[in-house]
Design a protein around this nucleic acid. Structure first.
Ligand SMILES: [Mn+2]
Ligand SMILES: [Mn+2]
Ligand SMILES: [Mn+2]
Ligand SMILES: [Mn+2]
Lengths: 219, 219
DNA sequence: ATTAGGTTTTAGCTATGGCTAAATATTTAT
DNA sequence: ATAAATATTTAGCCATAGCTAAAACCTAAT
């Protein structure tokens, strides 16, 4: 079975909004994330349910099926490989790749993706630090915690970002935070949750709770 | 104004079926070339006429407008740059690129194409010998004639193919004909129009009128 | 000048994937 | 337990882009 562009976008979103087991993904969440009206989402959920890529119980949110995961991971693999291509080969910056990769990920050709993977040297992570699933949908997960949850004086390394919006990524560029940077938490403000960190033992930067929450650390 | 995928495919086809001035491109020709029913083509021609990319006079075929040419050349540029990418970087053979490039050509991003062009070293011709229009739609034409029309004992160089089908290109691979090969016509059979040519002063091959007609030579 | 054959268009249908407005179900607060 | 608020679905549109069958048109042969 082959999914349409729209269906691929939905299943990818549902997969990414799925939060370890528990409640299903809600219509409203999908609607917000994809910037579509809830009514449009409802309609598509019924179709995706009929195709067997999600379990759909009206009014109770959806759960992705094993079949559905396969499709989601295939699209995510393509998206992330193209992101690597854009950054590594075409000199895009990490905040410019999202829109283009969101189109490129729908190109249908197994051999294209295999060759692209090979050409890029079989990268394991995309420019935002997210893991690239292999051909079979296997993802090498590495434990990571949000910068918020790190103790005072603890050290670690920035391995990914939760938010890939241009605004957020450009902010990180400006303050000098990047994937791979070694950090140490040197101040935690109880009042508003903001923190101060030392980057690469060179530079200290101050950031809000919101920013810190979107930075992922490997300790 | 932005054309849809389908509209881009139509305008590209119309441009390519346009034969220096004279009669308009017929509904049936477009239908045959795109493998769509004439009724569907009629419908689209009306829409493209409304958008101003073609001149459409019912029952008399269509003429592409200057505006239309701009869109066609932009899509052709993308198609051919992607074909170069697939062959040069991803080791596709020239008979494997058509389908994938036909999808890739619709990705919308000016910066993507500019960077791709730069990355490929500003190629002037695609893997089939066809010229790549520049950003402004300018095409560097080089005079070329079909191998059929070459005199006995005349020499030249293969610069392009008219037919980009996998079957034809694989046949050329098999007999050892390729873009850039130097050829000499050493036999012309009046009866059926078939010919014998010498390739690179090394190997002689025999080919039907039909095959020769699809090979383009620069003398 | 008429007619037959081929070409092209129109009419009406289907599928996909959006939308708004209204109806209905669930959840939360009283 | 009920009512209000919120979330979700349904109903009825619209646009795009394909199809078949029937009608209309053009052209070439008689
Ligand atoms: Mn997408
Ligand atoms: Mn990414
Ligand atoms: Mn195309
Ligand atoms: Mn080509």
């Amino acid at each position: 079975m082959k999914l349409s562009f729209a269906e691929e976008n939905y299943i990818k979103t549902i997969y990414q909004l799925t939060d370890a087991g528990k409640k299903g993904v809600s219509t409203n969440d999908i609607s917000a994330s994809m910037k579509l009206k809830p009514a449009s989402v409802s309609d598509m959920l019924r179709k995706l349910g009929d195709k067997g890529v999600i379990d759909y119980r009206k009014y109770y949110g959806v759960h992705i099926t094993e079949e559905g995961k396969k499709y989601a991971l295939s699209t995510i693999r393509k998206q992330r490989l193209w992101e690597v291509f854009l950054v590594e080969k075409l000199r895009f910056s990490w905040d410019e790749v999202v829109d283009v990769a969101d189109e490129l990920e729908h190109i249908q050709s197994t051999v294209l993706i295999r060759r692209l993977d090979e050409y890029l040297g079989f990268p394991k992570f995309d420019p935002h630090g997210d893991p690239i699933p292999d051909e079979y949908g296997d993802v090498r997960v590495r434990p990571r915690v949000s910068l918020n949850e790190i103790d005072l004086n603890a050290t670690g390394q920035i391995v990914a970002v939760k938010d890939s919006s241009a605004a957020f990524l450009r902010y990180l560029d400006k303050v000098g935070a990047y994937i791979g940077a070694r950090i140490k938490v040197i101040e935690k403000v109880e009042f508003d949750g903001s923190i101060e960190i030392l980057i690469d033992n060179k530079k200290t930067i101050f950031m809000s709770k919101d920013v810190a929450g979107n930075i992922l650390i490997m300790v």
